[in-house]
Computed example of a mutant assay.
Amino acid sequence: MSDAPGDALASRTGLPVGFRYLLDAFPRDRWTTTLDETAAFWLQMHAGFRGHQAHMEGLVGQWRADGDLTTLHRQLIPAVQSFLQHLDGHHRIESGQYFPMMRTIEPKIGPGLDLLDRDHDAIHETLDALFRGGLAFHQAVVGNAPDAADKAARLSDLIAHGARPLARHLEDEEDIIIPLIQLRGLHG
């Protein structure tokens, strides 16, 4: 199923109106109240991804300031590996376990969950590019290749390129999932 105009992750500026009815019933300003344990954990996981993105951007910023390719390699490669592993695992659990359960609890939100699944596909294309960029940078540094700085720049561009779509997805997913958990629970 293709995205409707304005629904594609790369161009979306917010959650489409048709998927906001749960958020309207349980808006973000009420999320400071006691949240269901699963909802709170979901937000904690998303905060971790935001923090990890910021950490990678900080490492790249430091490299751009000091030019220390060795330090960048030593710190960024493990950070990228951890980010890729955690985000991939998180999306697999969501798409494979939580989203199907949520479809039975709240069938009306099925198209919103489809949107989030399409986001996962788009993000995984970015993650694949990030993996390939990280590998190319690692191989260039280990092999003392003359283009190692170019590979670092390419990797840093990939990190920056993936930031906005990831942030958009995390926010939109929260706007569907947190109210759904709070209003409907996960047990039907």
Rank of each mutant, 00 (worst) to 15 (best):
Met1Leu: 08
Ala4Cys: 09
Pro5Phe: 12
Asp7Tyr: 12
Ala8Trp: 11
Ala8Cys: 05
Ala10Glu: 03
Ala10Gln: 15
Ser11Thr: 15
Arg12Gln: 11
Leu15Asn: 03
Pro16Asn: 08
Val17Glu: 11
Gly18Cys: 02
Gly18Trp: 10
Leu23Ala: 11
Asp24Glu: 07
Ala25Pro: 06
Trp31Pro: 10
Asp36Leu: 10
Asp36Ala: 12
Thr38Gly: 02
Ala39Gln: 07
Ala40Cys: 04
Gln44Asn: 07
Met45Trp: 06
Gly48Tyr: 02
Phe49Asn: 03
Gly51Ile: 07
His52Tyr: 03
Gln53Cys: 14
Ala54Tyr: 09
Met56Ala: 02
Leu59Gly: 00
Leu59Cys: 04
Leu59Asn: 00
Gln62Phe: 02
Gln62Ala: 09
Trp63Cys: 01
Trp63Phe: 14
Trp63Glu: 00
Leu69Val: 13
Thr70Cys: 01
Arg74Ser: 12
Arg74Leu: 05
Gln75Phe: 09
Leu76Met: 10
Ala79Thr: 15
Phe83Gln: 00
Leu84Cys: 02
Asp88Ile: 03
His90Ser: 02
His91Cys: 06
Arg92Cys: 06
Arg92Leu: 14
Ile93Tyr: 15
Glu94Asn: 01
Met101Glu: 08
Arg103Asp: 04
Glu106Cys: 13
Pro107Ser: 14
Pro111Ser: 01
Pro111His: 10
Pro111Asn: 06
Asp114Arg: 03
Asp119Ile: 14
His120Ala: 13
Ile123Arg: 04
His124Arg: 15
Ala129Arg: 14
Phe131Ser: 03
Gly134Asn: 04
Gly134Gln: 00
Phe137Gln: 00
Ala140Ile: 02
Val142Ala: 15
Val142Phe: 09
Asn144Trp: 09
Asn144Gln: 15
Ala145Gly: 08
Ala145Gln: 10
Pro146Ala: 11
Asp147Asn: 08
Ala148Asn: 07
Ala152Ile: 01
Ala152Met: 10
Arg154Gly: 05
Leu155Tyr: 04
Leu158Asp: 04
Leu158Arg: 05
Leu158Thr: 13
Leu158Glu: 13
His161Thr: 12
His161Val: 08
His161Gly: 05
Arg164Cys: 05
Arg164Lys: 14
Pro165Phe: 10
Leu170Arg: 07
Glu171Met: 09
Asp172Gly: 10
Glu174Tyr: 05
Pro179Cys: 07
Arg184Leu: 13
His187Asp: 04
Gly188Met: 11
Gly188Ser: 11
